[in-house]
Design a protein around this nucleic acid. Structure first.
Length: 814
RNA sequence: GCCGGAGUGGCGAAAUUGGUAUACGCACCAGACUCAAAAUCUGGCGAGGUUCACUCCUCAUGUCGGUUCGAGUCCGACCUCCGGCACCA
């Protein structure tokens, strides 16, 4: 141990030691209880940013803590290495996506090692390597067998000038990011995963994880799934040859007597069919439908807020309300969405705000059929006839109430009518109760190169044929043309596209799309359990030992998509017999952003290149050491909060580390002659007794804080103990045996409990305190134990107030 | 609009079940050491008032009210900010 603290030297020394001893390698052949600590895998952009540093500092602190508490901790890392940027690099710089990706991974791996994160590096995986994406393809085939994937036409963002598919980001603002051409929608045949088949289970499963997941994440998922209870009702179209029925979905069947129109979405298949006959308004409708389609294509422009004005057109046709028998007009309007519910609604202006607005614009009748319960009673006394109230309604009345003007249903409460009317519709065969979801099936086709090829072959004779399992992986070709325009690069590689049909042996073509990268991240943490398995995505038994994940840590930006997909994937894997549980993640922590002052302003914004407020982790580690950076990141704010980057804060962390390093340096010899067992209580001086009290109180506090992942208060408690040690008046030169015992106890406590934050300097100090083998060595749990007797305050003081005034304090032995 | 979260010093924040509000750190101020500076160490640091002074008093956790001996914490109403969703029938 040097007299002065040199972070760089110490960090290099221990990083080498950990590497050479494979200190954090674990196996399922272990007596200790397991703990799976997982951080969201990074995209290998080339450089770590502060958000990564925060994420891995949190995960590493928890991993170290659990290891020191005697757990067998799985703490792995890998790379979400498929995706667009590698393809962009190929287009811009002519490098091969694979080379670019591997270079980035190599650099970032070095950065993670310089941070000193305690990963089991033998388990590192990368999505772009065939030994991983082979299993993406395998899962695709399994889902194909189970009918969980299917193909259908679906729109993509399309630049007509460059003839290429654009992502949502590339078409933001409604124009192509490269050439500024207005983006169109184009229908392509694409693969979808039937996640909606699990909608109900994804909702119900939340009960199981409620305690361990942040409320807001669960809420976001709930909203995303968007369960809605209501009813389908079929409205027969009058005088129509095909006996068409228009099916609508409603959550307010109790208002059906107030329906004054049926409104179809412009894309509704019946629109064309209904117009096949003789409609005087045929042309008008056709033009309207075209206009709506066109405006939806550029609707990205409106993404940020303003609602489109409601517009519609009457078709000239009429439909029959199956409850009242009344004829009401059929309209087509832009405010009805094709892909929700039935793509058609009954328009009840009196009790739905959107319908109200629409009815006002087009002078449709507004007929009140729900009355507030209290009003209804008054009116029954004064006006038993229930006159049409449309003239007096200033806006829609959307509450539940009492049904009026509704024939035999009048007088019912909404709550009862909802149930009874749905049952009636079902009995009569024109509808019934139904549940719909906002959740849509998951489109996984990407017209891109840098992804897992979809293992499907098209044969003119046999049709759509899955690639046989034994032919996996379908490898990405080495050479492709990256012009950035035209079709998917895979489509241009003849050797890839042209193949033979597995069934008839004739000429056939491969699917040239690749899978969404969310497929890779849906199951990667199962692969960590058994990363080199060549026979299966993972061994059931091995995965059963490690999974589910005990603690998952990552950004809130993945609250819905990734975390919903991975929950779905787990249920799917359960249904094909790979796992036996329903939920992959027991506890989730969503870390806050790392922000920095934007120069020339007083605004704190997420660090980014474009704002020029980024901070390079390498620079920080170079200047202050990885330990100080990690300590600051965990001390400055609770993990869920925003973290404001302040360099003076790191300086404070370095100061604290130097102080403790100094204590250890000065006391290291004196401590070696401290008695092994605690001397009897009466032999301790008052100062030593106070120090011991602080030591044990700190152990208790820090341990509790770690269990709750309150790292900032853990650090604060350790700082207090350090301050108490500063106040300890004994010196290494004059310390009695009991003083030396108390000093050793305090310093060892500090060193051990700092380890999760600052593992390098802790290893160094632990060694200086006379311990061999290092803190990372597997073995007994070293986390200190608090002696409750020593930790408790000798007296408890309870202030007593009478009428708000402090009247006295009660002292009591604890 | 709907849903969720949060409002505490100059700043990041603490207070686990209602029990001395502001721990810990940053910044700042003063002192010690030094020829000097840096580093380090010591002390101070919510607001207002009071005392020569040790002190003591009043107010303060977004606002207003309630429960309680006692409220940052529990209840009710409101205000503000942040995040998500948004023509979802």
């Amino acid at each position: 141990m040097d007299e002065k603290y040199f972070a760089e030297k110490i960090e290099e020394k221990w990083q080498r030691h950990w590497d050479e001893s494979e200190a954090f390698a674990v196996s399922e052949q272990d007596e200790r209880p397991k703990f799976y600590c997982l951080e969201m895998l990074p995209y290998p952009s080339g450089f770590l940013h502060m958000g990564h540093v925060r994420n891995y500092s949190i995960g590493d602190a928890l991993s170290w803590y659990k290891r020191l508490r005697g757990f067998n901790v799985l703490h792995p890392i890998g790379w979400d290495s498929f995706g667009q940027p590698a393809e962009q690099a190929a287009i811009k710089r002519g490098v091969r996506p694979g080379d670019w990706t591997e270079d980035n991974i190599a650099h970032m791996r070095g950065q993670l090692k310089r941070m000193g994160v305690s990963y089991d590096w033998r388990r590192e995986m990368a999505a772009h390597r065939p030994d991983y994406y082979k299993w993406d393809q395998w899962f695709f085939l399994k889902m194909y067998e189970k009918g969980l994937v299917y193909k259908r036409l679906s729109p993509v963002n399309w630049c007509p000038k460059e003839e290429t598919v654009l992502s949502n980001e590339q078409s933001s603002g409604g124009v192509c990011w490269r050439c500024g051409t207005p983006v169109e929608k184009k229908d392509l045949n694409q693969w979808f995963v039937r996640i909606t088949a699990y909608a109900e289970e994804l909702l119900a499963g939340m009960q199981e994880i409620e305690a361990g997941w942040p409320e807001r994440v669960l809420t976001m998922q709930r909203n995303w799934i968007g369960r809605s209870e209501g009813a389908f009702i079929d409205f027969p179209v009058k005088d129509h040859a095909t006996e068409a029925r228009i099916r609508v979905f409603t959550t307010r069947i109790d208002t059906i007597y107030g329906a004054t129109a049926v409104v179809l979405a412009a894309e509704h298949p019946l629109v064309g069919e209904l117009l096949a006959g003789d409609s005087p308004l045929k042309n008008e409708v056709r033009q309207f439908v075209e206009r709506v389609r066109a405006s939806r294509q550029t609707s990205a422009k409106l993404a940020a807020g303003e609602e489109e004005e409601k517009e519609g057109v009457a078709t000239g046709l009429f439909a029959t309300n199956p409850f009242s028998g009344e004829q009401i007009p059929v309209w087509v309007a832009n405010y009805v969405l094709m892909d929700y519910g039935a793509g058609a609604v009954m328009c009840v202006p009196a009790h739905d705000e959107r319908d109200f607005e629409f009815a006002q614009k087009y002078s449709l009748p507004i007929r009140r059929v729900i009355e507030r319960v209290s009003h209804a009673q008054e009116r029954i006394e004064h006006d038993p006839v229930h006159e049409d109230q449309s003239a007096v309604m200033p806006h829609a009345f959307t509450d539940y109430g009492i049904v009026v003007n509704s024939g035999e249903w009048s007088g019912r409460l909404s709550e009862d009518a909802l149930r009874e009317m749905a049952a009636h519709a079902e009995r009569e065969g024109f509808g019934g109760g139904a549940v719909t979801y906002r959740l849509r099936d998951w489109g996984v086709s990407r017209q891109r190169f840098w992804g897992a090829p979809i293992p499907i072959i098209y044969c003119d004779r046999c049709g759509t044929i899955p690639v046989p399992e034994s032919d996996l992986p379908v490898l990405l070709p080495e050479n492709a043309d990256f012009t950035g325009t035209g079709q998917s690069p895979l489509a241009g590689v003849a050797e890839f596209v042209n193949t033979t049909c597995p069934r008839c042996g004739g000429a056939a073509r491969r699917d040239t799309d690749t899978m969404d990268t969310f497929v890779d991240s849906s199951w990667y943490f199962f692969r960590y359990c058994d990363p080199h398995n060549a026979e299966a995505p993972f061994d059931r038994e091995v995965a059963a030992y490690w999974t589910p994940v005990d603690q998952y840590i990552g950004g809130i930006d993945h609250a819905v998509m990734h975390l919903l997909y991975t929950r779905f994937w787990t249920k799917m894997m359960r249904d094909i017999g790979l796992v036996t549980f329903d939920e992959p993640v027991r506890k989730l922590m969503t870390q806050g952003m790392v922000t920095n002052l934007v120069e020339g302003t007083n605004e704190w914004k997420r660090m980014s290149k474009s704002l020029g407020n980024g901070v390079d982790p390498d620079d920080m580690i170079g200047a202050y050491g990885a330990d100080a950076v990690r300590l600051f990141v965990l001390f400055a704010a609770p993990p869920e909060n925003e973290l404001r980057w302040q360099e003076t804060g790191i300086e404070g962390a370095v100061r604290f580390l130097r102080r403790i390093y100094g204590f250890v340096y000065r006391w290291r010899e004196a401590i070696k002659s401290a008695p092994a067992q605690a001397p009897p209580a009466e032999q301790f001086s008052d100062g030593a007794r106070r120090l011991r009290h602080e030591t044990h109180r700190t152990i208790a506090r820090v341990t509790e804080d770690f269990e709750r992942m309150h790292f900032n208060t853990s650090v604060a408690a350790l700082m207090e103990l350090s301050n108490a040690f500063q106040d300890f008046t004994a010196t290494p030169e004059n310390a009695s045996a009991s003083d030396r015992f108390a000093a050793r106890e305090a310093l060892e406590t500090l060193v051990l409990m700092l380890t999760p934050f600052t593992p390098h300097i802790s290893e160094e100090m632990w060694e200086a305190l006379g311990h061999e083998g290092g803190l990372s060595a597997r073995g007994e749990a070293r986390w200190p134990r608090s002696d409750a007797e020593l930790a408790r305050k000798e007296e408890l003081e309870i202030p007593v107030q009478i009428n708000g005034k402090l009247r006295g304090r009660l002292r009591a032995a604890h």
